[in-house]
Design a protein around this nucleic acid. Structure first.
Lengths: 127, 127, 127, 127
DNA sequence: GTGGTCTAGACCACT
DNA sequence: GTGGTCTAGACCACG
């Protein structure tokens, strides 16, 4: 899985990393139970500090995306929470995006097509 | 138009304010050419620093949402840019949201319904 | 409020600090809305690194004990969650303590007395 | 006696194991003088490293819960220390739990009931 | 002046 | 060899 960080972005490195891993899980590039690189490996590979990767892993763990096993390091959670309703913050973020899209002149049908296209790349399946 | 800020949020105040104004424009609570409060008025009304409101207005101006006329203050842009394609950052944000929704177990049809519902509140029309 | 850290304890510094602040809140040494020392102040006062204090504050924030306002720093949450039922982990910890007490020869009445004595020092009131 | 470990818990395996054995003794699932499985047996049964079980047994021995006889392996101590007063660390742990309970809105009477309920499962008797 | 992020490098606990 | 903790010191974003 390819990860690219923008060093001069407003988004903190640990958050960029977190986002890319979340997308990796949703798109199936990271399968449930799949082992993630060690903190040191990933830090070296990306040219960043181990503490930054560490923070990312802690965050992902806290959010339930990954599980950390003292014996073998970090791996994708075997089964992720299945909610019937979208988390409220997700709804707020979506509202903001749709507002911006509307103003940019993207109408509902274009937007839905874009969503469909993105959804087609998501292969994550709940057990 | 009602604006509510969370002082203890992770999102900076100027960004919360910017987001709410953008949503206000898209939902028609702020019409094109409509005059915005002065920096001082808004700052006092919200109980925050004028610098913060200033920063918001600068950002909105730079993004093209508002125009600033030294004589008459700030007003919503008379004509907002109409793009055929969604801005690339918007697409990235949407991908992240959809990834998270997928993992939370929100499937495409549920998501589409949520989008439709949000779209129905957006009344902004391009001239 | 007096805080004392054991540098050679098994419990990490940031956790010792977190525990003492939690106890401070429960015993009323820290009132709701009360301002906590700044990260730098507390770090210097305790002779530890700012990042350690930072981690403590992040943890307390995540657990809902404190709120961080960009304008004025950290303060005790104005109103803490009121649960009817004890959190399950709390129950597990209590079971372990009672098991150890039982083996040490502390019987139920002694234990209840001890609890009562500790409870009498807790002055936190839900609004 | 059933022992279940969470491989991905924050609590180290050897400590989880130690805790469960202590609870086992207090609840009478392990009687005084009862023989414990050998290090190898237990390690294999739980699918963990023998070093880990070893560490648990050493700890339990050091704390006085078990005695280790090279010829016959480990067994529960025939006579556990009977203290009039609770160990001070136990008191500190209890204070922390009560502080958290208070903040969560569990009042003294609810807490006492919970204690009583847990005590009713403890059958250990001093000789 | 506040907290938040990041680095480089060290040491420790767990398995 | 894994993640977790801690330090000293730096820089940044926010208000």
């Amino acid at each position: 899985m390819v990860i690219s960080l923008e060093l001069d972005s407003d988004t903190p490195l640990y958050e960029q990393l977190r986002n890319q891993i979340v997308i990796g899980i949703a798109t199936g590039q990271l399968a449930p139970e799949e082992k993630l690189p060690t903190v040191r490996q990933l830090a070296e590979e990306l040219g960043i500090n181990t503490m930054t990767v560490n923070k990312t892993y802690s965050l992902l763990k806290q959010e339930g995306y990954i599980v950390i096993d003292r014996r073998h390091g970090a791996k994708v959670s075997p089964q992720l929470q299945n909610h019937a309703e979208p988390a409220p913050e997700l709804e707020g973020q979506l509202q903001l995006i749709i507002a911006q899209a509307t103003i940019q002149g993207i109408d509902e049908s274009k937007f839905q097509k874009l969503c469909a296209q993105i959804f087609s790349t998501m292969t994550y399946q709940h057990p």
